[in-house]
Structures are given as C-alpha cells and as structure tokens.
Amino acid sequence: MRILVTGGAGFIASNIVDALIDEGHEVSVLDNLSTGKRANIHPNAPFYLTDITERSVQMVFEQCRPEIVIHHAAQIDVQTSLHNPLLDAKVNIIGTINLLEQCKSFGVKKIIYASSAAVYGHPNYLGVDEKHALQPISFYGISKHTPEHYIQAYGELFGLDYTILRYSNVYGIRQDPRGEGGVISIFLNRLLHEETPIIYGNGENTRDFIYVKDIVSANIAALIYGSHSLYNISCNQQISLNNLLKQMNAIIGSNVTPQYVPARQGDILHSRLDNQKALKQLQWLPQYSIEKGLTETYHYYKACL
C-alpha cells in the first residue's frame, strides 16, 4: 500500500515507517523537523519537509497519492499547550483538518490517528476504558481529543475510514530525553550520565507504560482492522515511579537514589488504560514486558553515548 506517515521523523512514527517498509509498503514521510530528526528517516522513504498546517500539504498528496495516512505529527508538549494554546490548537486541530481535507480531495481510503490518554484527564476508575468520560485537564488533552470528532465526522460525511488509537505512556528507542521526553528516557539519560533522577511527589504515582514496538504493531494492525472505531493502546498494567527506577537500577547494575521534589500541579496520580477492546478487535497483543522494553531501551541509549 501507499502510505503517508506524518511526523515520520519523530520518535514513534519513525519506528512505524521502518516497520512498514520492512513489510514492503511504499511509505512517504511528512515532517517539519521541529522536533523530529533527519537521522530517523528511513533512506527508502521519500521525505517532504513541510508543516501540516501549510498549503504545501496538498502538493505532498499530489505527489505520493497515499491510500492510507498515519497521522502522528503534533504539538506534544503539555507545557507549551498551556503557555501557547493558539500554537497548540493550530498544529493539532487545524493541522489535522488540513490533512482531512486532502484525504477527502485525493480519495484516501483510511486515516490512522495517534491520540492520547490525555483526553481522559483524572480517571474516575482504573482501568480506563473507551467509555470513560472525557475530561482533559490541559489544552494538549483538548487539542488531541478535538480531532477525533473531526475524523469521525469526515468518516460519516465523506466515507473516510479511520482508526483512532489512544496511547498510554510510550517509551523506547529514539525517544528524546530533552524537553517533554517521557520519564523513562529522562531517567535513563540521567543514570547513564551519572546524574540524579528527579521524581515529582513521593514516587508512588503510577503509569501504564507501553514500548514503542508495541505501538508500531498496533498501527500495522489498524491497516486492516478497527474500521470506524477507537482503541486504547496500552499494556493495561501499572508501575510506580519508585519501582520503575528500581528496575532500571537492576538492569544497569547501579544503585542510584532519586531526588524527590514537590509534585507538580495537575499531575495525574494513577493511570492505567484498559486495552481489552484492542485485543479483541485489532487482533493485537503487546509483546514487551516492562523489563524487556527497558532492557532494549537501555542498550539503545548506551550505544548512543
């Protein structure tokens, strides 16, 4: 299939591109390189340096004529969304609408959209399933949720097929530990540089971490399954930040203790996404335990030093 991957120079989407090409698909990458890296782009993927909010997106569709669009390009920094909500909305909402217009004009068969657990806000129960109330606590959560409605409307109005994937906390190879990098990449980066990891709060808050290769396999499954539906993509397991650091110490062979600082306002205490719907309907199953994923990620970062 001809597939266009937006944000294909970034952490998650570049891994998806690699897997799609390995499976024999014809893949193009669209990215503005604001956070993505040229080094992440597969050499066999035509690359279009443009922004999803720009008119030039039409030219990309004209040239690569995608059958499927996998949409990961986004403003992903929660703090940026709070300080600059106009930018956040422009990229995540207007940018997605721009892509949807091109999907309509060029007869794209399906769009696969990377959404986020941030759409749920503070959970009313664990595990959070797809029927949970949507009550985002940041502008980022709002700007990731709003495109879901547009995608569903384009599906109803214009026959565009879609699968929406709401990710839990993703980690793994190519994740940038700087800025809004995930806690695992930040911890590993500090440990490898013999710096003290910082934990906000008492470290007993929990997260549902999922390895990037399991995210990749979910996207590949969505090429075939999940028509006109949305799914949580998670491991459906919780681990505290204290236990997470303990496992990292065991893998690395270190005994580093963290620095505890006051909890940040708005941080969610506990998070776990129920993934049963994806397991049943996407024919998908996560393959990486936290130990296996951490070990592979550690060796990746160590090799990059």
Rank of each mutant, 00 (worst) to 15 (best):
T80N: 14
T80R: 14
T80H: 05
T80A: 14
S81K: 08
S81Q: 13
S81N: 12
L82M: 13
L82G: 09
N84T: 11
P85E: 04
L86Q: 10
L86E: 10
L87Q: 09
D88G: 09
A89W: 10
A89D: 03
A89L: 04
A89M: 06
A89H: 14
A89G: 07
A89S: 14
K90E: 13
V91Q: 05
V91A: 01
V91T: 11
N92P: 14
N92C: 13
I93F: 07
I93L: 11
G95N: 05
G95I: 06
G95D: 03
T96P: 02
I97M: 03
I97C: 04
N98R: 12
N98E: 09
L100K: 05
L100G: 09
E101P: 00
Q102C: 11
Q102W: 04
Q102V: 10
K104G: 05
S105G: 03
S105Q: 06
F106V: 02
F106H: 01
G107W: 00
G107N: 03
G107P: 00
G107K: 06
V108N: 00
K109R: 14
K110V: 01
K110L: 00
I111C: 02
I112V: 09
I112L: 08
I112F: 03
Y113C: 07
Y113T: 04
A114M: 07
A114D: 12
A114G: 11
S115E: 14
S115L: 15
S115N: 14
S115R: 15
S116M: 13
A117M: 14
A118S: 15
A118P: 06
A118F: 09
A118R: 10
A118L: 09
G121Y: 01
H122Q: 10
H122G: 01
P123Y: 10
Y125G: 02
L126T: 12
V128C: 04
V128E: 03
E130D: 11
E130M: 11
E130I: 13
E130A: 05
K131H: 05
A133H: 12
A133W: 01
L134S: 13
Q135W: 06
P136R: 06
I137D: 08
I137Y: 08
I137M: 12
I137Q: 11
S138A: 15
F139I: 13
F139R: 13
F139V: 15
F139K: 07
Y140V: 13
Y140E: 14
I142G: 02
I142M: 10
I142H: 14
S143M: 12
K144W: 05
K144N: 13
H145N: 14
T146S: 14
T146W: 04
T146E: 10
T146N: 11
E148Y: 04
H149L: 06
H149P: 00
H149N: 08
H149E: 10
Y150L: 01
Y150I: 00
Y150S: 09
I151F: 02
I151M: 00
I151Q: 02
I151G: 01
Q152L: 04
A153P: 00
A153F: 03
Y154A: 06
G155N: 07
E156A: 09
E156L: 04
F158I: 00
